[in-house]
Design a protein around this nucleic acid. Structure first.
Lengths: 197, 197, 197, 197
DNA sequence: CATGAATGAGTCTTCATTCAT
DNA sequence: AATGAATGAAGACTCATTCAT
């Protein structure tokens, strides 16, 4: 019942609580009241900051999408395959560093509607992956121009590299015993070795 | 001579209808009545064959798990890395051949409970992945014994290979424009090249 | 929990219960559960027969509209002003005979949206009154043709005659001490005397 | 010298805003926040001037009741039937001149509790109509004393006359295409002709 | 076996009202 | 006085599940 002034901070508190709850129970069985309780506020207060339960999931996705986009711009300098390895490791580490957010991705994936045509949804996971593939494809092209790639490498390989990351993430989410962090190097390893000349 | 179809066949009809419905709308928004309608039967009849809505999802998972296990035993003969490539391609093709079942995996993943320790759930996706990783690890060991592997390859690489498949599946599910079938060779390509000596 | 077969009868039972409840408490404060309780069924059952709380009000209105339309066709024979008197009395008696339905009209009126243009609403009270005015206008025209009307009578007088009925109804609804039935003759009296040559 | 306006004026501003809002959306769907927004103030401020949402409706009714009472005292001089016609026209014109207030009457009517016995409510519409009927009855008695009434006219006719006004108002509220102002003369016409000797 | 009417627990969401600032 | 963040009671509606027919 305190009168908070920083709407943004309060919003983030609620979102963090939501991610925590969604991660524990899954989105499907998480009630708004659970989120409110986790945030230490009343049910109705959640609605002052988010339009609906869905909006909480969408906001969580936005957080992820933003972090994901940031990865693509912080690759530093160096040979393209080195930057690729950095990108792969960065992604794995980012996911491992935010396990609750990562767990919520399962729900984001599941709530992705069948996208026959285009249609932009609030949970445009397709766009995120497309962007990452673009970035990887760019790095592969650079490497190819430098002659360090074996022939026949194309954007499909970008999909496989992105897939390797997400697939390891998935296995880790489904079975936390899998050491995602330790896997980061291996992913980079396989991916780079898999395309190098 | 049962009436029209025996109990097992009718059960499978219902399950197929459920998979169809779950694939279109997602498990969360699919109602028992939708499944019944898709199967051309009444709501109550579903309960004569399945204990609950959850049981339908579990049964769909079982179908997948069985097909997945089958993949591991039909690798034929030949050099281990060839069999590995066959396994990878087989998995991708199996998934692409059953798009509705594949879509339901999104819901299976999302309904995976947090599994701190062991705990066997009706949706033991962890077990499935573990089995596949075991198989891949076996092939890698064989290859290693034959000296065709570069040094340092271990069971982590198995996780990455499995991850590449599942991650491509995921991207395809989230964005059907991605050509999963065409990707099969590329996945095998990268995975094998990524571990070969 | 009995298994009823006559859907129409059950629907009418629920609607009757709803009218009873709405009449006692007003639509605004009547909960679906109240209606269900009055009908001796569970809350959810109401929704098997009506889409929403609003739909119950709309259905109650339909009952009224139908009864109202019936009034316009059962005027029998005789001089037009006699038939007009019969119409007026019939309306008053019909309303008095169904006090609960009449009370619900207050809520129907209040829920009539502002109808700037045309737009057909499920509660088209405007249409009902328009129809009655048409009928009254028809009778007045007949009377005029027979020369029994004083000059200058037009469709406005129809509105006033309809108004007299509805206005008495309103006063009765707001203050049940007013004897609507006794008023029927007076309304007919004033209306006929007010237009006669 | 109060800040900008004194308490009474501010209260009236809010009430006017409320009437505007209630007229557009109906009382049932009007939220306090809507009223505050229409008045250009914050939600909480409304409560400094009105105890509750209901109190706003009651206050709107009071305004109407006061205007209605005023009608009864400004009839000027002249023959009683002339004053009656003036009263009828005055009522219709008053209502037409304040369409928002008139629209709110629909909600006032609908919120009238079932009044089995007496019971004074904050929305005593019964009292208002009773008072008007008294006034009309007074005029009719005067006319009767002057021998200008046909025999048999009593207080029931007063109810019909009041009913004619309110019923026309109702039709206009439900269907704004009806020209209430033009109807004023017709109402007076029918009512006077309906009772004159 | 099959049906589908009935149930009622479960949740989202709204919004009148309060009160700390 | 004014504000608007916070509250939480209230209620519409859904739908998995049951069971009488």
């Amino acid at each position: 019942m305190p009168k908070r002034t920083d709407r943004t901070a309060r919003r983030q508190e609620i979102l963090d609580a939501a991610v925590r709850v969604f991660a524990r129970k899954g989105f499907a069985t998480s009630r708004i009241e659970d989120v409110a309780a986790a945030a230490g506020i009343a049910k109705g207060t959640v609605y002052l900051y988010f339009d609906s339960r869905e909006a909480l999931l969408a906001a969580a996705f936005e957080d992820y999408a933003a972090r994901s986009a940031a990865l693509l711009t912080d690759l530093g300098a160096g040979p393209p395959l080195e930057r690729l390895a950095r990108l792969v490791r960065g992604a794995a580490e980012m996911l491992a560093a935010h396990p609750d957010h990562a767990r919520v991705l399962l729900d984001v994936w599941a709530s992705a509607p069948i996208r026959t045509q285009s249609a932009t949804s609030p949970l445009d996971m397709a766009r995120v992956y497309s962007d990452v593939r673009q970035a990887v494809t760019g790095l592969l092209r650079e490497a190819e121009a430098q002659g360090v790639l074996r022939p026949g490498v194309d954007e499909r390989h970008a999909a496989v590299i992105v897939g390797a990351i997400e697939g390891c993430l998935l296995q880790w989410l489904v079975d936390p015993r899998l050491p995602l962090t330790e896997l980061a190097d291996t992913i980079a390893d396989v991916c780079v070795a898999g395309v190098r000349a």
